[in-house]
Design a protein around this nucleic acid. Sequence first.
DNA 1: CACTGTGAAAGCATTCACAGCA
DNA 2: TGCTGTGAATGCTTTCACAGTG
Lengths: 214, 214
Amino acid sequence: MARLAVYLRVLTEMLAEGVRTVSSDVLAAAAGVNAAKLRKDLSHIGSSGVRGVGYDVPRLTQQVETVLGLTRSHAVALVGVGNLGHALAGYGGFVQRGFGVAALFDVDPDLVGTTIAGVEVLDVARIPEICADRGVTIGVVATPAAAAQHVCDALVGAGVRSILNFAPAVLSVPAGVEVRKVDLAVEMQILAFHVSRRHDGVAATSDATGKVFG
Amino acid sequence: MARLAVYLRVLTEMLAEGVRTVSSDVLAAAAGVNAAKLRKDLSHIGSSGVRGVGYDVPRLTQQVETVLGLTRSHAVALVGVGNLGHALAGYGGFVQRGFGVAALFDVDPDLVGTTIAGVEVLDVARIPEICADRGVTIGVVATPAAAAQHVCDALVGAGVRSILNFAPAVLSVPAGVEVRKVDLAVEMQILAFHVSRRHDGVAATSDATGKVFG
DNA sequence: CACTGTGAAAGCATTCACAGCA
DNA sequence: TGCTGTGAATGCTTTCACAGTG
């Protein structure tokens, strides 16, 4: 459930503000979801809300953290230190939540040897060796599409079983390996679809054959 | 449907390779989805596959482009030229598909006036004026969470009705405005969940109350 | 009395399986 | 024969509505 992570962010904010107790209505509104859905989600993780009162914020926060596996820290390897990769390496949001950037890789000899956010960039050939040494559990692929599958294979070979893919390519992996994809071009295209739909007028949004979409 | 954008990418690649015709099986495999699902998706946009042969690649490509509204180009305004925003401004994947970066904004006086990828960074106060002038239809929010809602309101006020939000915050917008969210920390946490699940052993993944999750 | 936890209902998305056409 | 388009079946997610509790 992707929503648990959102709940956790809201809960952490509330905790920082000193809020001790929260109702499902309030928490759901802050997380942008339906209240019933939130209660069902929390019931799945064995929630401990008090009827007539609400949920204990510190306790619920810890519960969600435990379920999400954030009680341990995760070593992340980032491959591809180009435009996007460079930004990700320096992105504060990762370290903030226990995701340490344990290693950076690239093919470009000009980049190998440089240091980004205190971490040295290494050659991609060293992925197996370094990932094993540093106990990497999560790999981030921020390479061009053409290199993505190759890099992915290297990571999987090094024992990495969770991969976040920013490359516009479909990665094939053996069973047991989890891949999540973030495709910025796809997100833009979905928005473009809605722009057109509005601009054309809903009833007029049609394709060449005259059939209406949606 | 987010998958249409993925199909389009695969189709464009095939077109470049000179492939004229493709079956639903092959296209589905390349896009990483079920063949029946792909056929149903294409039937919704009034597809024109030939039974016994497959789909005509050039024709299908154009059909998908039309539905996604990629026949016109879209002016994008990017707000927040920090770590991530800077990378997005220079990201080739946008321009490549007809998404021109029409304007950049930031609050930081040190950044205002600088030029990134050929576009000058302007003060956020000028969002209404500039967005109207340049016909911006899509806004990208890459600010810290605290500023996100404020920036979002400014964009909506300027007539922008499609927003891509990278800030870890829930944006509230009036009806008719479409918001898509990309939360990198959330993606990482979902992967962390799977790491823990594997490490603990599925049967042992439990919360404090002893109830098993999933 | 306010709020949680949860059956039951409704709504979607996915998959199956096959009729029908080139 | 090979492949599309699609009704029917399945499974999952969301929502409703309310019984039950501190």
